[in-house]
Nucleic acid binder design. Structure first.
Length: 502
RNA sequence: GCAGCCUUAGCUCAGUUGGUUAGAGCGCUAGAUUGUGGAUCUAGAGGUCCUCCGUUCAAUCCGGAGAGGCUGUACCA
């Protein structure tokens, strides 16, 4: 280093203040938003519990090999996951969903668990990918799974429970729909159009086709056709390569995604024609028919549970029925933009997941609901009715020597069932009022010299005062006004507050 | 991941043809108006001008690289 540090160096040495900010794609949650999230979790958990599911909590970290990766064509292995190396050299990763930890848990404790196992779990999951508006790298999921049941009653039950959850949260019938498909039908379709499952490039082609079908909802039929053929160029000029199917093959796949989903039996018939006589396709159809029959028997209509051949639901590990919960209403957000919410959760049957650990096939089916997006939707719908906490009472401190007595006063208020706190700062009266206002307090209790001499306290109603102040422009008038307050004998404070609160 | 645009105070933004001490509004903190949230007045705090490297006597400004943000797209277990 030179004798005379440059200005840049001098500047650099001056301060080393860290910048206070949340990491990219992560966020803090407080107040109404947090209360809503807790309320939603409690509501959904109650539905899950009423179906007999029992709660499980697992660690945020899992060994990386236990989480595994499920996309065979993934050209970026191990991306999307937060990982770190433990001091024993083993790699651990933050869970990216709650299903992989469940598979590990089942495999680890298989012998002592009741089968079928019905467990629900909620908690944050982490994904190391590009965040976007309303899309974070940590978010809350709440899952329910049945492990060890191979029949379609287990799948059907989960779909019906998903519908029940939406209504428990206050959504009206028609504001949501659970769309259901079956992986086996799609595999049957691919065989029916002449693809060879033994061919080397089959997996890649299959994924490309499934991805294309998945986009039907968002991009429409023409885009799907382009993606099935040569590929598609989007508005930014970016090119997505296609599946290179023949026009005849494209036509069949297009027919499949275009099937109207309004009527379950018609949808099933139309699907049956397209999968032809393929064994796997027939199997998938039979499974869907079983489910549809249960829906009808139990009175779950087409408006709540629909068969939809364009549902693909991820690509990794699903082996049978797949389903997605979709919000069907539109609403305007703060900026007046039309917001569509689309999928808020989904799931399906994954019969191979535990096999990775145990070597034996253990059938499983389950659902995952994303709490954050649902919360945003409920807020815009005005259905975010999480219970408000009780009215807050802030007791101000006029003379610091009286603090012990005032603490006893707020303790007495609390013992009477009121929500009360003593101002814990050291600032003057005005700041204490501002504090109460910022906290959203309903009442302020003041005991100054005058009151103490009279054995009284002043109760100030901040809500009332705010309404009054709207009509006052002049400062003198403001000062002369009563400030929406009253004086009561100190002994009557609790009962008076209870009276005012109710 | 790819493409385009962007980055100066907590927020919204000025500004410097490269030159001593970088500004406004709002917000925040405190004081005044008898001991009361609004209004008014006064004062104050708050800045690595995104980061690093280079060019220069001198860089917030010019050049290069990188990071972060926004939008679209891809991926989404």
């Amino acid at each position: 280093m030179s004798e005379q540090p440059s200005r840049r160096q001098a500047k650099k040495q001056k301060k080393f203040k860290p910048k206070a900010r949340t990491p990219r794609g992560l966020r803090d949650m407080a107040g109404d938003e947090l209360r809503l999230q807790n309320h939603m979790i409690a509501t959904i958990a109650q539905v899950y519990e009423s179906y007999g599911f029992g709660e499980l909590d697992t660690s945020a970290f899992e060994y990386a090999d236990a989480l595994g990766k499920f996309l065979p064509d993934d050209d970026r292995p191990n991306e999307g996951v937060f990982s770190l190396e433990d001091d024993d050299g083993q790699w651990m990763s933050l869970r990216y969903d709650l299903t992989a930890p469940l598979a590990r848990y089942v495999a680890e404790h298989y012998d002592r668990l009741p089968k079928p196992l019905r467990r629900f779990q909620f908690g944050p999951v982490w994904r190391n990918e590009k965040p976007g508006p309303g899309r974070y790298r940590q978010f809350m999921q709440i899952d329910a799974d049945t492990v060890g049941a191979a029949n379609q009653a287990a799948d059907a039950e989960i779909c019906m429970m998903a519908a029940d959850c939406m209504e428990a949260l206050g959504l009206e019938r028609g504001d949501y729909v659970v769309r259901i498909n079956n992986r086996k039908i799609m595999d049957g379709l691919l065989i029916a159009i002449g693809l060879d499952p033994e061919a080397e490039e089959y997996e890649t082609t299959r994924l490309t086709i499934l991805r294309a079908m998945d986009k039907f909802d968002r991009l429409g039929l023409d885009a799907v056709k382009a993606l099935l053929g040569e590929g598609r160029k989007d508005e930014s000029g970016d090119f997505t390569k296609g599946a290179h199917l023949t026009p005849a093959q494209i036509d069949k796949v297009a027919q499949m995604v275009s099937i109207e989903a309004n009527d379950r039996s018609h949808a099933l018939d139309a699907m049956a024609e397209l999968v032809g006589g393929t064994e796997i396709g027939q199997q998938g159809l039979a499974e869907l028919r079983d489910m549809a029959e249960l829906f009808t028997t139990l009175g779950y209509g087409e408006d709540r549970l629909a068969i939809d051949p364009s549902i693909v639901r991820g690509l990794g590990y699903y082996t049978g029925p797949v389903y997605e919960i979709e919000l069907t209403f539109e609403a305007r957000d703060e900026t007046g933009e039309l917001a569509r919410f689309g999928s808020v959760g989904g799931g399906g049957r994954y019969d191979d997941l535990v096999k990775r650990f145990k070597g034996i096939e253990i059938p499983a089916t389950g659902i995952s609901i994303g709490v954050s997006r649902l919360a945003a939707a409920l807020t815009l719908l005005g259905k975010a009715g999480a219970a408000e906490p009780a009215d807050l009472i802030v007791v101000t401190v006029m003379d610091k020597e009286t603090r012990p007595e005032l603490m006893a006063l707020v303790r007495d208020l609390r013992q009477q069932g009121l929500r009360a706190e003593l101002y814990m700062g050291d600032s003057a009266m005005k700041a204490q009022l501002r504090y109460a206002d910022a906290r959203g307090a309903r009442f302020v209790v003041i005991e100054g010299e005058d009151e103490r001499a009279a054995g009284e306290v002043t109760i100030k109603d901040l809500q009332l005062g705010k309404e009054k102040s709207a009509e006052i422009n002049d400062n003198a008038e403001w000062r002369a006004s009563e400030h929406a307050q009253q004086q009561v004998p100190k002994g009557d404070l609790a009962s008076k507050l209870i009276e005012l609160t109710s």
